[in-house]
């Protein structure tokens, strides 16, 4: 190899397993799934839109837990902050343009991410987990007490988003909200795919694998994680904002420990450390929950428990993680 032509070297280098074309396949798969779900459940678009909002929350958990190795049981704080920010913008400030509400949600989520990160990243291991729970409880209590702004335990109502782009009204069927949700998901997914391959994404994976080594190469673990917390807040905040637009009400449950824990469970079911895992886990969990709770209102929690135990025992990497692992082994053979 001629050293005078360095550019030619790069072409020789083996590319990673998932190449750029796989990215487009992923986006196409999301769109295809969106259309199939639309055709299968035309009367259930509100649920599907809620699923998309929660997908954003689970993606957001994945960013800090799956990519960076920070365990959290308080991530609904970021989601709820986004929902309240979008809701308050509409109900108190008359900002009813849906795009502006989403932007408000993202900003609210980012601020909550910054605050959460500043507190949670002070701890390690179990202490970190406890701090994350404390954060979501504090957010919950703050929203409860600030009833004049948030509606307290009654929830924040009077959220009336104006038509999207001035054209598409938010109809009773929820078609506009669903379309907006899918569009946001595609954009977020595209950006996160790029993020996960970027130098910053590599550094984050390095932190999960060995933070001491990252520090020994002169990079700040804390600053990097804080940045990821803010990005994670943006994503969760978009999900929260979408939820506020689609349901036109924001309740305290969006800031709850329960939702935080459920988000982590969904991520584990799908598979941590992968964007696909976050999406698949959320869709499976929420649709399964909806189906089972309708089919058997008395024992649905038992069945949900069985699903979780089954996945953890038989597919410890989660549904997507295990499938990807099997595929990888099959290809090497």
């Amino acid at each position: 190899m001629d050293a005078d032509h360095p550019a030619s070297l790069a072409g020789q280098v083996a590319r990673p397993r998932f190449s750029a074309s796989a990215d487009w396949i992923g986006l196409a798969a999301i769109l295809a799934a969106a259309i199939i779900f639309y055709l299968l459940f035309p009367n259930n678009l509100a649920l599907l839109t809620r699923v998309i909002g929660i997908v954003m929350l689970v993606l957001s958990v994945d960013l800090v837990t799956g990519f960076c190795g920070v365990a959290t049981l308080g991530h609904a704080a970021l989601f709820g902050a986004g929902a309240y920010a979008a809701g308050i913008a509409a109900a108190h400030f008359g900002i009813t343009d849906p795009i502006a509400m989403i932007a408000a949600g993202a900003a609210g989520g980012a601020v909550a991410g910054l605050i959460s990160g500043l507190v949670v990243l002070r701890g390690h291991g179990l202490g970190q987990l406890v701090l994350s729970i404390a954060i979501v409880n504090l957010f919950h209590e703050a929203a409860n007490k600030a009833a004049s702004w948030t509606g307290g335990s009654d929830g924040l109502t009077d959220i009336a988003p104006s038509p999207l782009f001035g054209v598409f009204a938010f109809d009773l069927w929820g078609r506009t909200a669903y379309g907006l949700g899918i569009a946001l998901l595609v954009i977020v997914f595209f950006l996160l795919q790029r993020l996960s391959r970027s130098p910053f994404g590599m550094l984050c994976r390095g932190i999960r694998q060995d933070p001491i080594r990252v520090a020994a190469m002169g990079a700040s673990v804390r600053k990097t994680l804080l940045k990821m917390y803010i990005i994670s807040g943006l994503v969760a905040g978009v999900g929260g904002g979408l939820n506020a637009i689609s349901t036109q009400v924001v309740g305290l449950d969006s800031l709850s420990f329960t939702l935080s824990a459920q988000a982590l469970v969904m991520l584990v079911i799908g598979g941590t450390g992968s964007l696909y895992g976050a999406i698949i886990g959320t869709v499976v969990f929420m649709l399964f929950e909806d189906f089972v709770s309708a089919a058997n209102p008395f024992h649905w929690l038992t069945i949900m428990g069985a699903l979780l135990v089954g996945v953890v025992l038989f597919a410890p990497r989660g549904i997507f993680g295990t499938a990807a692992h099997l595929f990888d082994q099959w290809r090497r053979r």
Binding site: R194, L195, S198, P199, F200, M202, L203, K227
Partner: peptide
């Protein structure tokens, strides 16, 4: 390493 875009490749 703080860059959010671009890949090694």
């Amino acid at each position: 390493t703080g860059r959010l875009y671009g890949t090694l490749w």
